[in-house]
Amino acid sequence: MLPQQRRRALADFLRSRRDRLTPAEVGLPAGPRRRTPGLRREEIAQLSGVSITWYTWLEQARDISVSRQVLESLARELRLSPAERRHLFALADAAPPDEITDDDAGVPAALQRMVDALDPNPAYLLDANWDLVAWNRAEAALIGEPVMMADRNLIRLVFTEPRIRALLADWTGQARNLLAQYRADVAPRLGEPRIEALIAELRRNSPEFDRWWADQDIAEFSSNRRVFDHPRVGRLTFDYAKLSTMDATGTKLFACMPADGSTAEKLPQLVEEPLAGS
């Protein structure tokens, strides 16, 4: 169990992060007569999938245990930065989730160099969990700098991040296709806590995910076209190609090649300046 001083620091940190969020930022109605500057305890408890009693005890520095899964959920719903996430896990005496990987060696240097060499064409690596684990400057300029994101899971970003939704010209078609690919890819791992927690969370927080997951659609990856409406350089059209790597189990390399002359001409400009807010 944590010492009292650490429990108090954890409680104070959670309360401070909760106070800085507004209902609009997490998709909740403001409602009348709000007496708190940010989210209420019951709101963050509901978003994180824990009971209001348990969360209240946590903010009261009670002597209770906190699982890694709950910490991950709290970090996500509180919109914590990478540094804040590490601090949260340190206060709870748990190893940060981004330091626990299936491959302790991380992304092989040769794969990172391959991704970097594809600039100014956007390129990125997904691990077996569909987390972004490597990307080049063009990809960061296209979607926003991933290292600044509280969470880098592609499926979660597509279904819960408003900026990604706004970027995709055909969000409905692309999101549904990605979900069908995800379902096919993780089918052998259904039942694993991490996969089941993500599915349950998205079914709870995204009406589209919940409806389409129930449809049972399956799709293998095939080279397809994605159209982006970028806030700085305008419309960009890419043909996506995927390579499965030999160096890291389950890792996939995606390269985005310009599908027309206009997109090719805009790529140097895309890389020169980062996307605002990234």
Score class of each variant (00 low, 15 high):
R33F: 09
R204D: 10
D215T: 03
Q5S: 14
R194Y: 13
L253F: 03
P146Q: 09
E43N: 08
S48H: 06
R235W: 04
G144H: 02
N153F: 05
L267Y: 12
A276C: 08
L39V: 01
H87P: 02
A94P: 00
R203N: 11
D151R: 13
A24R: 11
S48A: 15
G27A: 08
V66P: 11
L2K: 08
R15F: 00
V50D: 01
I199A: 09
T36L: 06
V70L: 15
A276H: 07
D229H: 15
A276Q: 10
P82E: 03
V26R: 08
R211I: 05
R204Y: 07
G234P: 03
R34E: 10
D119A: 13
A184Q: 12
P82K: 09
S262I: 05
A187M: 10
A83P: 00
R152E: 01
F89D: 03
W57G: 09
A200E: 15
Q60C: 11
A24Y: 01
L132Y: 04
N129Q: 13
T245I: 00
E201T: 09
R7I: 12
R41Q: 08
A141T: 12
F254E: 03
S16R: 14
Q69V: 11
R137G: 00
T251Q: 15
L21C: 07
L118F: 15
L178H: 12
R62T: 02
A219V: 14
S67C: 09
L10K: 04
R189V: 08
A214D: 12
R40H: 00
P231S: 13
V26M: 00
A150Y: 06
A150M: 11
P146I: 06
P29C: 07
S16V: 05
E161L: 09
L80Q: 05
V26H: 00
I218V: 13
L275R: 07
S67N: 07
K242G: 02
A24V: 08
L253S: 02
R194P: 07
G250M: 11
L39I: 00
R7T: 12
P274L: 10
M149I: 02
V66R: 04
S206L: 13
A128V: 10
I52F: 06
L47H: 07
M148A: 10
D215G: 06
A134C: 15
L126N: 01
P231D: 03
L125V: 14
A175Q: 10
A30T: 15
A109H: 12
A45L: 07
T56G: 05
L71F: 13
A105N: 14
E265K: 14
M1V: 06
D151N: 15
T56E: 03
R113T: 08
I164N: 09
Q216G: 04
A134I: 06
R203Y: 01
I195F: 14
A30R: 11
S67M: 04
G144P: 04
S244M: 12
F159H: 02
R35V: 08
L142F: 01
R203K: 08
A95M: 11
L10Q: 02
S51H: 02
E196Y: 05
E272Q: 14
L198H: 11
K242H: 04
A109W: 00
N224T: 15
S16E: 13
A11G: 05
L142I: 10
L126Q: 04
G191N: 00
P162C: 06
S48F: 04
A95N: 09
